[in-house]
Computed example of a mutant assay.
Amino acid sequence: MIEPRLNYVRCPGAQAVRAEDGETTPGHRMAYWEWNATGNPKHPQVVVCVHGLSRQGRDFDTLARALAPHARVVCPDVVGRGESDWLADPMAYDVQQYAGDMLAMLQQLHQEAPIDALDWVGTSMGGLIGMVVSSLPPGVLPVPVRRLVLNDVGPAIEWSALERIGQYLGAPLRFDSPEQAAAQLWDMSTSFGPHTPEQWMALTRPMLRTTPQGQYRLHYDPAIAQPFRALTREAAEKGEALLWQLYDAISAQTLVLRGAESDLLSPATVQAMAERGPKARCVEFAGVGHAPTLVAPGQVEAVTRFLLAPPPKGSA
């Protein structure tokens, strides 16, 4: 079974804080997991997979293994999560900073090996970052985003879902074992839909870090909750208008995935996304809420079929 290689990119902007002494450092490092089973370490097709708010890049292991024989697959740990640095200023945890970090990563990847085709898979927050990146004007990216997968997210986000997420985000959870962690995290994540115990444990283990006391904690900086909780309903509504502007500027072929029971992405929003901007296609998964984990075979097949399809006839 193939495994990813862990790499880092130095990102400008917000300062990191060193865990060992609390001192700040210029800029910060973002970690990313790179998968490549093509036999060509410089494969020109790159697929970037970006996780949700409190998750990390190893969420995409199953999907990455399916894509790796065909493309260079890159799964970052967004700053504050996984193997990436934590930021000194919690209010710097925002989509603008995250998008800037992705640009730094793409520039590094392009310097290592020219990118000819760039695709994006974004779950929840990762989809918002993808909308920002995909709407950038020509010349900012090494190449424009060609195909975009928005996993249970769109320009309009239901306020009740944000309130639900805010109830657990940043909680100082401690676990005595990975098995206990898996059980407690499942109680918080049943909206992800059916998973076998093996699938859920595979998603859980990368979420855990050991403490000096020998327990387990979650992998992310609890301070990511501060800007999230500072968001007001009024600010969210203003942000929605901006997100629709970004969405309308997207030229990439776009696929929206929706959990049929999602409380974050409404059917009305999906319908609007199909009628404007890139006129997204939608695939809906029964028995799943927010958000599909892209582990079930049907979910993986929907994404791989979209990303690996030949170009439409008459396209360049």
Rank of each mutant, 00 (worst) to 15 (best):
M1T: 08
I2M: 11
R5A: 08
N7F: 08
V9L: 03
V9A: 00
C11Y: 02
P12T: 08
Q15Y: 05
G39W: 07
Q45E: 15
C49H: 01
G57S: 10
D59W: 01
D61M: 10
A64K: 02
H70S: 08
V73D: 13
S84N: 05
W86L: 06
A88M: 06
P90Q: 00
A104V: 11
L109I: 15
W120P: 00
G122E: 02
S124D: 09
M125F: 06
L128C: 02
I129S: 01
V133Q: 00
R146W: 02
R146G: 06
R146Y: 03
D152S: 05
V153W: 04
G154K: 04
E158H: 13
G166D: 14
G170Y: 04
A171D: 14
P178N: 12
P178C: 09
A181V: 00
A182Q: 02
Q184K: 15
L185H: 05
H195C: 12
H195W: 05
P197Q: 14
Q215R: 13
A225H: 03
T232H: 10
E237L: 14
L243S: 07
L243Y: 07
S251M: 11
Q253C: 11
Q253I: 08
V256L: 04
E261P: 07
L265F: 04
V270R: 00
M273L: 10
R276Q: 09
R281L: 10
E284H: 06
A286R: 00
G289I: 07
G298Q: 12
A309F: 14
A309D: 06
P312Q: 13
S315R: 14
